[in-house]
Amino acid sequence: MTRRLLLVLLAVGVVACEGRATRAPSGFLAPQQQDPALSGDGRLLAVIEDQNGRPTVQLRNVQGGGSLRLRHLSRHQPHSSPSLSWNGRYLAVITQRGNHRLVLIEDRLSGKAHPLRLPSGRDPVRVSLAPDAGKLAIQTADQGRWRVEVIDLSRLLEPDGPGGPRRTTPSEPSR
């Protein structure tokens, strides 16, 4: 009897540890989604979707799935490597201008865009924004090797930590 109870408890424990999975919210005729990035508070999800053949960053509410408007990120594709701050105020993504890739950070609270050319002059390959938006880590290529650079953004961006202002943009109908 005790052995059976232990087996049941073990099975419950295993199921609990595995977590519960759901599909990310998307529209009726959902395009394929790649390169997910969650905001620190877990409310927002940025993904790269194919829009008319162009990889384009999209921002969605995790609950409900409404698509949120991005003012500066409807062009300069292909987009890659999205990254969000804690409340999703800032979205960093790699875009393309001419023959160079650059990091663009959209401030959804002020509506400003911050295009960043790296101090090293190298093109970014992947980026990751710290939850409070104080730092940005960037993968670059240098003389045939991958490098990671870290830059301080504290003089450029206001902090967006837990308890900071949440940016609410009207949801658009899901495609």
Binding site: S83, V125, R126, V127, S128, L129, A130, P131, D132, K135, L136, A137, I138, Q139, R145, W146, R147, V148, V150
Partner: peptide
């Protein structure tokens, strides 16, 4: 060489 950076609050 180093790749796939991911930032935490005070962590890389």
């Amino acid at each position: 060489s180093r790749r796939l950076p991911s930032m935490g609050q005070r962590w890389l």
